[in-house]
């Protein structure tokens, strides 16, 4: 992609023009560092994708694919949206990879937690005596 190629280059001056892909930060004697500026077209494109995906996730509820499939479709769309936000709005695409590792680690442990607890709750439901509303009166 075009903006990626620009990102690799290191322009020396004239960086403040709008639309320039990145700006050298002048840290006096401490060297320069280059920050990635997301171009407007990309922001808009991501936004349009997000709106379309929202439309899809709402629209898909009007079709009955069965309980399980509907959940997974909804989750898949949500994951797609979340990925777009994280990659472009949250700059993960251009960030240090370790930040993505942090995010993935968090998601992994959330998944581990939820997965195990669901698995177990499914198993012990059979032994779970549900509260009853009868035979309590004296």
């Amino acid at each position: 992609m075009a903006h990626e190629i620009q990102h690799v280059s290191t322009p020396a001056g004239g960086a403040h023009a709008a639309g320039q892909s990145h700006v050298p930060a002048h840290g006096q004697h401490h060297g320069e560092y280059h920050v990635h500026v997301v171009p407007p077209w990309l922001l808009i494109a991501v936004f349009v994708c997000l709106v379309i995906l929202t439309g899809i996730t709402v629209g898909v509820t009007y079709f009955d694919f069965g309980r399980t499939l509907n959940v997974w479709i909804a989750l898949a769309v949500a994951v797609a949206k979340a990925t777009l936000v994280a990659l472009f709005f949250m700059h993960l695409r251009w960030d240090s990879p370790f930040n993505s590792v942090v995010l993935f680690a968090a998601l992994f442990f959330v998944a581990l937690f939820i997965g195990t607890v669901i698995l177990d709750s499914k198993e012990y439901q059979i032994n779970f005596v549900p509260p009853t509303s009868t035979s309590m009166a004296p």
Binding site: S96, L103, F109, V110, V117, I118
Partner: peptide
């Protein structure tokens, strides 16, 4: 930025608890 991401990880875990209750 790293500090912020690590903090966001804690936020995800916190909401993860609610999502867990929901899922169960």
């Amino acid at each position: 930025k790293l500090g912020m991401w690590v903090f966001l990880a804690t936020e995800l875990l916190m909401f993860g608890g609610l999502f867990c209750a929901y899922s169960v």
